[in-house]
Write a protein that binds this DNA or RNA. Sequence first.
DNA 1: TCATTCAGTAAACAGCCGTTCTCTCACTTT
DNA 2: AAAGTGAGAGAACGGCTGTTTACTGAATGA
Lengths: 234, 234
Amino acid sequence: MSHTVGVRQAQKQKTRQALLDAGLRLLEEQSLSSLGLREVTRLVGVAPAAFYRHFRDMADLGVALVEEALGSLHGMIRAILAEQDGDEERIEGTVDAVAQHVRAYPAHVRFIARERHGGVRPVREAIAAELGRFVDEVAAAFAVQLVADGWSAEDIRMLAELYVDHMVMTAAAFLEAAPDRTAAADTVSTAEGSAAVDAEAADRAAAEVEARIAATACSQLRIISLGRRHWRDA
Amino acid sequence: MSHTVGVRQAQKQKTRQALLDAGLRLLEEQSLSSLGLREVTRLVGVAPAAFYRHFRDMADLGVALVEEALGSLHGMIRAILAEQDGDEERIEGTVDAVAQHVRAYPAHVRFIARERHGGVRPVREAIAAELGRFVDEVAAAFAVQLVADGWSAEDIRMLAELYVDHMVMTAAAFLEAAPDRTAAADTVSTAEGSAAVDAEAADRAAAEVEARIAATACSQLRIISLGRRHWRDA
DNA sequence: TCATTCAGTAAACAGCCGTTCTCTCACTTT
DNA sequence: AAAGTGAGAGAACGGCTGTTTACTGAATGA
């Protein structure tokens, strides 16, 4: 068979991924600057010292998580920019893609939103750099049409920043609407099935909130889109 | 003399304020979920147990900080909304007010940006609630004119949300541009005055970045403003 | 004036933390 | 088949954490 890159390295990367997964899981309920090394290794089932075989410290693991989290986002952005329909379809497609991404990778999105302005500098800088690349990508896609309309390069980038920031904002808003599985059943349950009923009700309520957020985000994108179309008048 | 509300209570509130100040200072380089009780009391010069005379736990102190931080913002919003000039003056006045506020209360702004999506639920909720009140305020100010133009209540709120979110985004951007006093002089200094020269150069560079952020924010507000004016056409 | 209240102290507690050793032993290379 | 490598184990370290306890003594109100 071909070069299987070694059983050794495969096991190592498996452990490394387990550390990343455990970290991401624990970060759903705290921030990176309070995440402990022992906490992570304990969840993986590995000795504390093993951590140092993969990361120098927690900030290092955080930076690795940034790459993982924004790597998955890259595909989403490309899918959105590839759409060739009219303005309205594009807007709804964008918001839909964001909603879908939040549903698929809630922990990644939460991590980015939380650590974007968080207490660990290297992680903040990594996120800023990666989001900057997104802005470049969006700007490049816009440039195709806008340069012909007489837009300057810096105005195009300004617009791209507005779109990217709005996407991050929308993603964070969707996250807050997501059902809270941590919520304890502190109400007195009278029947065995009431918990399931409550969960269903909560799901329906969350779906409503989600739809409202999507509608708001679409309207806001429509406003921005309108402004873009009338930009040259000034 | 009149009722001086007691020397006792005055001293207590003085200590309480010292705890809040110390907490805010320590939070410039970490997030709330990693801020320790002993850390705060040590900086104030008070026994650890004294903390419990003022706050139940760190989350409680965090909520108190939210009220303090967004209380000062309230005045700024009112000042912005009070402006009665034309659209362009209004936009520049808004961005200017935000920049001024960030310069005056950088720690407050950093705290809000950091903990808005941070790891402590009660604090997140307190910030969300307070920002919601800001949206209401902005929406009410907009309603005066927009209702006459045929805007629905929920569209007005949608627009207000866009403005408030954009203001928070802009404030966070200004914060990143602020000079980093923590930055160590890791370059080899050849003369005694070079540190001061470096600091001056850094200040000038920061001012440039700040101006660029302000220009971008103004343009983005212009886009939104344009979109608002053409909203009824759809 | 005297009893009361209560902000802040000091000490002790068990428990967790990051980091550093030395060691083992399965895999890899020669 | 032998030598080398390196991921992970296990134990130990000093230091820091939140919380509780019993206490002091100055401001308070009758």
